[in-house]
Write a protein that binds this DNA or RNA. Structure first.
Lengths: 209, 209
DNA sequence: GTTGAAATTAGTACGAA
DNA sequence: TTCGTACTAATTTCAAC
């Protein structure tokens, strides 16, 4: 139910300022690294693992929280054990200028775990978790189809979740500089690698919601 | 990097056993509910919020952990503030019987936050977080395209993440029984609601990886 | 499954480097 | 800023009920 940060594709090129507030240094990143693996670690143990004093750890911990770099702490739950063995992705085409309504309806659907607005053929992708396949059908034909904002949907099932990392951090990609790209440029069938941009009028969608 | 549980679409219809081990009752679910919102809450405070004794809370907390219903605790990090402002979805068509290789390569790509095997037109969806759009291009044409297992890709960008719930739980959908479906059946353009099954041979893919 | 008291640990405050 | 220490509050453990 929480609004989360925007991934401005438009302003991403400039990069530069990481946050309006806190400037994250290596120590901050290391704290985040530890915390995403073990969200329940004590600040004392955190300080030791990062190699700073307890007082410093408390200060930085609070700063990261206050700044919003850490949004919240959560338990990762095994949805299958919790009785929600079915996961589906529903790609939604949304009628323009009806995003506010769409978002409001989403908030009222507890089965929805994630929703992102995307470029490409569809306008949004939502991930739902339910107990059986019939419920997916009910959701799509009963709930989504009744939202005027929804023009069309396409549903696929998730057969297996191969990989889930708590959160990717910049420090993860400690690659030795940028790799020379020409080693592959010649032999790779680039034609099979499609990038799908937004359809017309989508650039303004974010402002409406 | 962690393998996570399978969502067996095939065995989902039978439902029934939630986990081999622990049978989750209402108290367990309430504990999970609290924990997914606040992963750092003390067990003492948890006990109070759930309405049980502390000793009981400790017992159940440990049981949930041991059983695997709680997989881990993690900090939700604002990727934009962390310097990874670009999120993209890459839909991948994987050459059959090369899943093991595909998974191995995935594990070596730190930008990948999530990967799921899906039914439908493509075989897998991966979500990546990077600092700029150029890095997406590099990833797709440089890394993914070099994996023999990858037949084709389709990339879309995430413009906005509208909703993210820590984890959906069965107790969320406290709907008053099953809603009568006929109220909508007549008027909804069901033709616009597509369900996309797996292409041939996909049913066996999970065993290979 | 609950309560209460001991042992441990966490969180705060503050002076010094 | 960061560190180290001392102080206070809270949590966890363990016992008996």
């Amino acid at each position: 139910m929480s609004e989360i940060s925007r991934n401005g594709v438009g302003d991403g090129g400039q990069a530069g300022r990481i946050g309006i507030g806190l400037e994250l240094d290596d120590v901050h990143l290391k704290i985040l690294e530890v915390l995403r693996e073990n969200g329940r670690i004590s600040v004392a143990a955190l300080a030791e693992r990062v190699g700073i004093s307890r007082a410093n750890a408390y200060t930085r911990f609070e700063a990261l929280r206050a700044d919003g770099a850490i949004k919240r702490f959560t338990a990762e739950i095994d949805h299958v054990r919790a009785g929600l063995g079915i996961t589906a992705l529903i790609f939604v085409t949304v009628r323009q200028q009806m995003w506010k309504q769409f978002r409001a309806e989403l908030a009222r659907m507890p089965q929805v775990e994630y929703c992102a607005i995307t470029t490409g053929q569809h306008d949004a992708m939502i991930q739902v978790r339910v107990s059986d396949v019939a419920e997916v059908h009910t959701m799509v034909t009963d709930r989504l189809a009744n939202i005027p904002a929804v023009k069309a949907t396409e549903t696929v099932f998730i057969l297996d979740e191969v990989l889930r990392r708590p959160y990717v951090l910049p420090s993860d990609r400690a690659r030795p500089a940028r790799r020379p790209a020409q080693e592959t440029q010649g032999e790779v069938p680039l034609g099979k690698m499609r990038f799908v941009g937004a359809s017309e009028g989508r650039a303004t969608l974010r402002k409406e919601g």
